[in-house]
């Protein structure tokens, strides 16, 4: 396996951990978009341009859309979206 494959695999593994460990939904939505970009690089390395294109448009357009409107509706009722410890 060439070094490019190993580096991108390690980065995707670290990205998945970063998405899970981020507890605030708004920040997690941003980290999820970065994770989608890392997955696009991995899918291109696996020689799958259709799948990479799909993940690119979904991770930058569709997921932020759905998540932002959901977070906005939860917030606008005046409630907090994180729990009281803020973690």
């Amino acid at each position: 396996m060439i070094p490019l494959q190993v580096v991108s695999i390690v980065l995707v593994g670290a990205g998945a951990l970063a998405v899970v460990l981020q507890r605030d939904p708004l920040r997690q939505a941003i980290v999820n978009s970065v994770y989608a970009l890392l997955l696009v690089v991995l899918f291109m390395i696996y020689q799958a341009p259709d799948v990479a294109l799909s993940m690119l448009v979904v991770g930058s357009i569709a997921y932020p859309l759905v998540l932002m409107v959901a977070i906005m509706r939860v917030r606008d009722r005046g409630e907090e979206t994180t729990d009281r410890t803020g973690r």
Binding site: V12, A16, P25, Q28, Y35, F43, V74, T81, D83
Partner: peptide, 18 residues
Amino acid sequence: NLIHLALCLTVMQSGTYV
């Protein structure tokens, strides 16, 4: 947090794509 839970579900799905 239920929204955080939904995003962790998407992480699990991305594992199957890989």
